[in-house]
Each structure stands twice: as C-alpha cells, then as structure tokens.
C-alpha cells in the first residue's frame, strides 16, 4: 500500500478546573489563569494519525482554526509525531458557529490538497470539548464530497477500504468506508503518548503554515454563556479514616444497596 496522507483537526480550548467561569460580557470562558488544551477525542485522533503513519508510512498534518495562540496546540501535536501544521487564522477567536468553522476548515484543506495532493484520511474529534456541536467533521466531509462516520474506536486502513469500529450498547458496529474518507474519533481508541524531550525539541522546528480563514457566519449565533444552576450542597462528613466504615455501611443499608 502506498504511504498515507492524513490530516487531523484539533480545537484549542481552555482547560478549566473545578468550575468554568464566564467573562463579564458573557461571550467566552474566562481563561485568566487557565492553561489551554484540546479535547481528549482530538488527542486520540492525533495519536491515531501518528500510529497510522508509523504503520503505513506517509505524513500527518495537524490543522486548527483559531487565534495565533493555537500554535501551541499545533506544536503539541508535532511533539508527539505529527510532521506538518496548518493554522487557519480566525480573527474573532473561537466564537465561530459550526457552519462558519467547517466552511473555513474545508476551504483551507482544499487549498492544501490542490497544491500537495488529497488527504487519504481526515480525522476529527467526535465532538469539540467546549461547544460540542457534533457537526464540524460532518460538514467538512460533505463539503469535500467524502464519506464520514463518527464515534470511531477502531480504524484499519486497507488499499481501498477503511474499516471503522464504533461501539454501541450491545457491542460494536463495523463500517467500511471507501478511500479517501473522514472519521470522527472517540477517546479510548488508543492511549495517546506523552511527548518526549526529543519530540518537544523537534516540534519547535516544525513550520506552521498560516491560511486566512474566511468568515461567513451561519445561522447559529451566541448570545451568552452561563453556568447551570447548582443544587446547594452541604456535605455530610461520615468520619475520618477506616473508623468511618460503620457509618458508611449504615448509609448503604439506609439507601437499600446492601441487600
């Protein structure tokens, strides 16, 4: 089998701790003092791309639509083995709606494909960590005229066919997509590696190609973000250390789960 060209799309998001705070204008997550990351689904998509290139040869390109700071997420992917990076620059940060996001990513991928050849496989996360619109991958695939299946927890690339495994309640389903195709990946498909020191150093040298993102707002527009109501909680401390076991088992009896 000839070597693979793979693209993998990731989204820069803040990494909140125990609560998510919103900026005063209600338009975004207050990221003061927060680090940034990508969705675990996307981390797994990056790992899947790297593993497939290790297995079949070829190269992987990581793609993000976001502010210039999103270079951090591109370089992270480079530090675990992705060779190329594409930043689709979005002046207005990450408030882009799904149609707009997908159109800009599809356009950028088309530019790269026209120049370097088509991607055999384009990987997405199943859903983004923050907005979770469950559609950017589908919109991009359709714009490029390729089949897509979401929820993948297994990918095997053959000469003409890509076999995808997707879990369902009762087990898993098998799909066979003709190449080239697009796949939405779920966390659990693999165990993403951590960057090595060598990988980190190499990632600094990876050139990040920048493409201007076109901005064509779609029909979904953000008014404001807010936190869901929390039920006021007061914790009953059952005790300290092993001595608390009696109180715990009393509670289990009371809840009827002991029988």
């Amino acid at each position: 089998m000839s070597s693979l060209r793979i693209a993998v799309c990731v989204k820069r998001v803040p990494a909140p701790g125990s609560r998510i705070n919103v900026t005063a204008d209600g338009h975004s997550v207050d990221a003061t003092n927060l680090g940034f990351t990508t969705s675990p689904h996307e981390e797994c998509a990056v790992e899947a791309a790297v593993q497939l290139v290790e297995l079949h040869g070829g190269s992987a390109t990581v793609v993000t639509l976001g502010p210039v700071e999103a270079e951090e997420q591109l370089r992270y992917a480079a530090s675990v083995g992705v060779e190329r990076a594409l930043l689709v620059s979005a002046a207005d940060g990450l408030n882009w709606d799904p149609q707009n996001t997908a159109a800009a990513i599809a356009a950028a991928l088309s530019v790269v494909e026209a120049r370097d050849g088509a991607f055999d496989l384009i990987l997405f996360g199943n859903e983004s960590a923050d907005s979770g619109g469950f559609q950017v991958g589908i919109r991009v695939a359709r714009a490029l005229g390729r089949p897509i299946v979401n929820g993948a927890k297994g990918i095997e690339v053959g000469d003409d066919i890509v076999t995808v495994r997707r879990p369902i309640d009762a087990g898993f389903e098998v799909y066979e997509l003709p190449r080239p195709c697009v796949i939405g990946v779920k966390e659990g498909i693999n165990l993403p590696r951590y960057p090595t020191m060598k990988g980190r150093l190499a990632s600094k040298k990876v050139a990040v190609e920048v493409v201007e993102g076109l901005d064509q707002p779609g029909g979904q527009a953000r008014e404001r973000l807010h936190r869901p109501e929390e039920k006021a909680s007061s914790t009953i401390i059952l005790g300290n250390g092993p001595e608390a076991a009696v109180a715990v088992v009393d509670l289990l009896a009371e809840l009827g789960v002991l029988a």
Partner: peptide, 10 residues
C-alpha cells in the same frame, strides 16, 4: 456546552 458544565444561549 462542555458536556453540561456550561450553558449557551443562542
């Protein structure tokens, strides 16, 4: 949003 940790009015 965020799997239910945050809500968005649109």
């Amino acid at each position: 949003q965020w799997g239910g940790s945050l809500l968005e009015d649109v």
